[in-house]
Amino acid sequence: AWPVSGAERSSQEIWESFSQCFTPAVKEVVEFAKGIPGFQELSQHDQVMLLKSGTFQVLMVRFCTLFNADERTVTFLNGQTYPLPTLRALGMGSLLDAMFDFSEKLGSLGLEPDEMALFMAVVLVSADRSGISDMRAVEQLQEGLSRALRSLITCRRPDDTSLFSKLLLRLPDLRTLNNLHSDKLLAFRID
């Protein structure tokens, strides 16, 4: 319902708007993580390490709903909608193409909001383990959350035996997205 913007705004302004969207989104992932049963039982060090390595991937899952694959537009969290060519001009083409592709694949699985939330929890605790001090505790948390996701999906779709494995196949995609794009630059105006 938002007017497609971009024409009258400079690429610098769009870039700043894109960058500023990340700050609240990251804070929301941190709050989300604290709500995951068992997450706060991890050491503070391990909580920080998992968040640092997994937040970008959780954001990729969360941002899926902002990508309209049919109309090739992206709606930022501030409500502004941009056509893909406008954003491509900012040099974010490769990241956006990868996110469109990922959001189409994940979107096709038709997850319910609670299933998506549980999947994001699994994504976070499945993130890169470098720097983790208590590996056993993180693995136990991951196993518990994966079991919960599997049983939630199985009980809702008893005859769709492939959905859970299709979901797990998205984890390497997310890791690739993270490795390819988390070094993208953001710009914050300092007045």
Binding site: V26, Q47, D183, L186
Partner: peptide, 25 residues
């Protein structure tokens, strides 16, 4: 004149997480 702080997505994410946990200690 307007100046800009440029940082990678990963560094920006790390910065916000470190700030959050420091504030809540």
């Amino acid at each position: 004149p307007k100046t800009h702080r440029i940082m990678t997505l990963a560094d920006h994410i790390s910065h916000i997480i470190t700030q959050d946990f420091a504030r809540n200690q």
